[in-house]
Design a protein around this nucleic acid. Structure first.
Length: 139
DNA sequence: GCCAACGTTGGC
DNA sequence: GCCAACGTTGGC
């Protein structure tokens, strides 16, 4: 079991869209970055991820689950790019903002802080637990 | 194969 | 809206 973080612009694909996709999920397509592709390739069904809204909101709003293996991105005519399917699991009672993450010393090493431009990122179990606590999620 | 130029992304 | 950081592209 591994943990990830998926970044999206709410104007393009928001948490509400993800919820609307239901338990079957939706392709996390449109990723055109080699490192993000590599991260998705490393995912397996059942992995969990944070759902992060960039731009105006800049906060983690919920948890998603990987519901497929790494497969062809149907929106890519060249067939070069792949993606996984993700489904909404549940919202954060209290969204965790980027500012909150940056002010937490234990999260200073997070990829989100160090490389904010990467759209699909790995999250360590320690980071996962801490952010879930901060968001009032689970437990 | 290397390096510079350019475009895009995202935080502020 | 601006600026900095990063990735990608193209010329050499």
């Amino acid at each position: 079991m591994a943990f990830w973080l998926f970044k999206t612009e709410p104007g393009t694909f928001s948490w509400d869209d993800q919820v609307r996709a239901g338990s079957k999920g939706e392709q996390w397509n449109g990723v055109r970055n080699a490192l993000a592709q590599k991260n998705m390739r490393a995912m397996t069904r059942g992995d969990l991820g944070f759902f992060y809204h960039s731009v105006n909101e800049k906060c983690i709003v919920g948890v998603v689950k990987v519901v497929s293996g790494f497969h062809q991105d149907s929106t890519d005519p060249s067939g070069k790019w792949h993606c996984v399917d993700v489904a909404a699991v549940g919202p954060f009672p209290k969204p965790v903002t980027l500012a909150a993450i940056k002010s937490e010393p234990r999260l200073a090493g997070m990829v989100l802080v160090k490389n904010s431009r990467l759209s699909v990122q790995p999250v360590t179990p320690e980071e996962w637990d801490l952010i879930c606590q901060m968001g009032g999620y689970g437990a």
